[in-house]
Computed example of a mutant assay.
Amino acid sequence: MRILRVFFPLLVTLLSLLSACNTDRKDKTSQPASADAPPAINYGVVATYPHDTNSFTEGLLMHQGMLYESTGSPLEMPNTRSLAGVLNLQTGKIDPKVEIDRNLFGEGITFLNHKLYQLTYREKKGYIYDATTFRKTGEFALTTPEGWGLTTDGIHLIMSDGTDKLIYLDSATLKPVKTIHVHDHTGPVRNVNELEYIHGFIYANLYTTNYILKIDPATGTIAGRIDLTSLAMDARSRNENSLEMNGIAYDSASRNVYVTGKFWPSVYAIKFNH
């Protein structure tokens, strides 16, 4: 009986361990594979240029060989302005081409069909300018509560609104014609911000993070992710007021991508496989 009393607890313990191992194995195989996560995209820094630390960056793009920046104007930050213009990479200063009232808060910009388009944050409207004279020629209504980033595929305007949505606007009517939802292996991805269209993909800042997302416009799937934490840390080490990364501009001539952020002291030219 003593032998049975000793052996029986050992048998129960052994069976419990085997059951636990089987359960662990089942749980592990039911978890999403790490390969499902968006792959990391490596990059290298090609050059560094000055950037105005008063610029609350909302958009960045190349047009006819010149780098353009748009900025916003939080009312609690009196040194900020809502403007769009050519960014001088020698000085970091913007040569303003358009400027709106600070209360309207400028957002993303893009050029299409000889026009410059500019979004506003919460006014539910955008502005249209002649791309040569920068004279204001019209306005258009937004169907979303907020306007964030703006780019073009050469046919449509594509805008973000701070959610997981990317909204395509007809270039003639400026009405929505299609919406895609950005997602990864875990589900919807919100806070999609400033946009840039590069070789058939939409690249987007992910607001409050140091990531740029590579988005497949056919499905909304995130096809890759660039981690710019090292650049954000470098910017903050030289200006403690540096905020989130914001701004992506592709130069088709050099194949460089320019990136910066709100109040960053630098614009970085980086290179990666698009």
Rank of each mutant, 00 (worst) to 15 (best):
residue 1 M to S: 15
residue 3 I to G: 10
residue 5 R to M: 12
residue 7 F to I: 15
residue 12 V to S: 13
residue 17 L to K: 04
residue 18 L to M: 06
residue 29 T to W: 14
residue 36 D to N: 03
residue 37 A to I: 03
residue 53 T to V: 14
residue 53 T to W: 13
residue 55 S to R: 04
residue 58 E to L: 05
residue 62 M to T: 07
residue 87 L to T: 06
residue 94 I to T: 01
residue 96 P to H: 07
residue 98 V to C: 10
residue 101 D to K: 12
residue 102 R to S: 14
residue 102 R to F: 09
residue 105 F to D: 05
residue 109 I to Q: 11
residue 113 N to W: 02
residue 116 L to E: 04
residue 119 L to K: 03
residue 122 R to I: 11
residue 122 R to F: 08
residue 123 E to K: 13
residue 125 K to T: 12
residue 132 T to G: 14
residue 135 R to S: 14
residue 138 G to R: 03
residue 139 E to I: 09
residue 142 L to N: 10
residue 144 T to E: 13
residue 146 E to Y: 14
residue 150 L to A: 10
residue 152 T to Q: 03
residue 155 I to A: 11
residue 164 D to H: 14
residue 166 L to H: 05
residue 170 D to M: 02
residue 176 P to G: 08
residue 177 V to W: 04
residue 177 V to D: 04
residue 181 H to T: 03
residue 190 R to S: 14
residue 192 V to W: 08
residue 196 E to H: 00
residue 196 E to T: 01
residue 198 I to F: 13
residue 200 G to D: 06
residue 203 Y to G: 05
residue 205 N to L: 00
residue 212 I to M: 04
residue 212 I to D: 02
residue 213 L to C: 11
residue 218 A to F: 05
residue 220 G to R: 00
residue 222 I to E: 08
residue 228 L to V: 02
residue 234 D to R: 15
residue 238 R to H: 15
residue 240 E to R: 11
residue 241 N to V: 04
residue 242 S to F: 09
residue 243 L to Y: 12
residue 244 E to A: 07
residue 249 A to G: 05
residue 256 N to C: 10
residue 259 V to Y: 05
residue 259 V to G: 10
residue 262 K to M: 08
residue 263 F to I: 02
residue 270 I to L: 01
residue 274 H to W: 06
